[in-house]
Computed example of a mutant assay.
Amino acid sequence: MSKPAIVYFPVKGAAEVIRLTLAAAGVDFENENLPGTEVLKQDLDTYSFGQCPRYHDADCDLVQTPAILRYLARKHDLYGGSGSIVEQARIDQLLDGMQDLRPKIMPLVYRDAFQTDEARAEFWGTHAEPEAAKGQCRGAHMLYIDAFVAKHGKDGFAVGGQLSVADLVLFDLVELHQRVFGERFDKQYPAMAAHHAKIGVLPAVADYLASALRPEK
């Protein structure tokens, strides 16, 4: 039987949260490089919305990162330890809140045109500076995430008292900010930096981070 696989470009990008979730669940998976971007528009049976990443295993074949994450969370018991629909709804809330912020930070990591002092200053002033949370940031602000985790997390986890898919997505989101802002981010959001450190040393996650499965960029 073939291993579960992620089809994407050879970068962390939007697929990294899927890799982290699989690794945390102890799933042996493989990366498959996308065979050219033209397939995304030509093969709508496989790439239903003309996008990747794509995930496939023995049970299903999916695109759309949020759907993949929720599928894996349900399948591998990463959707809240209590089984409470309220806790699962809070995980969904946090996932959706992070999804609002993620597209704002991604260009600063992956697109050359946004890797400038001006772009970094604009992002920080809109989506990371605490005072900016009172303004028009369209729900995309790290302060909102920090406050949500402080309210609903426990024992160092993002929601409830055990590892969930929200922790893996938050780990990646914080790392994206650290790649752009370094110590400035850690000093402004020490609880987020502490969460990243905690998740990063969990044995299954640490093994993945040190493995050849993880893309360099």
Rank of each mutant, 00 (worst) to 15 (best):
P4L: 12
P4C: 15
A5V: 12
V7L: 09
V7A: 03
V11D: 02
A14N: 10
L22V: 11
D28Y: 05
E30Q: 02
L34E: 01
L34H: 00
V39Q: 10
L40K: 13
Q42R: 13
D45E: 15
Q51I: 14
D59Y: 05
C60G: 12
D61T: 04
V63A: 08
V63S: 01
Q64C: 12
I68A: 09
L69I: 13
A73K: 15
H76I: 08
S84P: 15
S84V: 12
I91M: 07
D92E: 05
D92Y: 05
D96K: 14
Q99C: 09
D100L: 15
R102I: 11
K104C: 13
I105Y: 00
L108E: 09
V109L: 00
D112S: 11
A113E: 01
F114Q: 03
F114R: 11
D117Q: 15
A119D: 00
F123Y: 15
W124Q: 02
H127K: 10
A132R: 03
A132M: 11
A133D: 00
K134I: 06
Q136H: 14
G139C: 15
G139D: 01
G139P: 06
L143D: 03
F148C: 06
V149P: 04
V149Q: 02
K154T: 04
G160R: 01
Q162A: 13
S164A: 13
L168F: 09
Q178F: 01
F181T: 06
F185E: 05
K187D: 09
Q188D: 06
I199H: 01
G200A: 06
G200M: 11
V205P: 08
A206C: 05
A212Y: 12
E216T: 14
K217W: 05
